[in-house]
Design a protein around this nucleic acid. Structure first.
Length: 220
DNA sequence: AGCCAGGCTACCG
DNA sequence: CGGTAGCATGGC
């Protein structure tokens, strides 16, 4: 087993299955990989991805609940909302002026998909969707095996000596995917590993990679 | 009081 | 291309 998969194994043993994406009904659906079941749930994940940019998920849940209270937790309703109302609903997540427009841009894109699966390139062309958001949407909303790299991932891998300080997003992503694919051939196993791995890194990094100096007490 | 949060765009050289 | 200012609220 390579180093990357050993890290995955240790994290999984330590923290257990994380589920896949936090939902407004309270939290993670541990061991429930059937979600998302319908268009609304797919959209809710995409919404969460945009809102969670550079913010804590607890703030995002406030925004989602706020939209839900207004009966606006779906793309058709959001489209009809006055812009100021949308902004005020998502205020807890920060950057509400930008994110309101990102959400509206995404809705236009989402409607044109008509239930289809977007490509990574198509997602990146939407204003407000960068590499991490594109991969998160593909991995969690559309069940595509795309590894998600975030600030925590980079810190952890750097501390473990597995990547270079100035490794780009794509370099890190491809490195992780190639190491994992050496061990896992089945697409469903790969998908679950990518989903869990990212969630496990976040869970672990919140404990050991939030404050400088990073990695103090990390057992990896 | 200050740093940090599961980034992204625009603009710079 | 790589590097960086600006975006904004909330929690600790």
């Amino acid at each position: 087993m390579n180093r990357v998969m050993k890290i995955y194994k240790v994290l999984h043993e330590k923290y257990g299955a994380q589920g896949w994406w936090p939902f407004t009904d309270g939290g993670y659906h541990s061991d429930d990989y059937i979600f998302p079941k319908n268009e609304n749930q797919i959209f809710e994940i995409c919404l969460g991805v945009i809102l969670t940019q550079n913010t804590t998920f607890t703030s995002v849940v406030k925004s989602l609940n706020s939209l839900s209270t207004m009966n606006c937790l779906d793309y058709k309703a959001i489209k009809k909302m006055p812009l100021d109302m949308l902004k005020s609903a998502i205020k807890p997540s920060g950057y509400f002026n930008q994110k309101a427009n990102y959400i509206l841009a995404f809705i236009k894109f989402f409607e044109r998909l008509e239930g289809g699966v977007p490509t990574r390139e198509e997602l990146l062309a939407v204003k407000g969707i960068g590499p991490e958001s594109a991969d998160s949407i593909l991995l969690y909303a559309y069940k595509q095996p795309e590894f998600v790299v975030d600030a925590y991932t980079k810190r952890l891998l750097l501390h473990a000596g597995l990547i270079d300080e100035k490794a780009s997003y794509l370099v890190i992503k491809k490195f992780m995917e190639s190491e994992i694919e050496k061990e896992l051939k089945d697409r469903d196993e790969l998908l679950i590993c990518y989903q869990e791995f990212h969630a496990l890194i976040v869970a672990h990094a919140k404990l050991f990679y939030s404050k400088k100096p990073y990695g103090i007490g990390c057992f990896l």
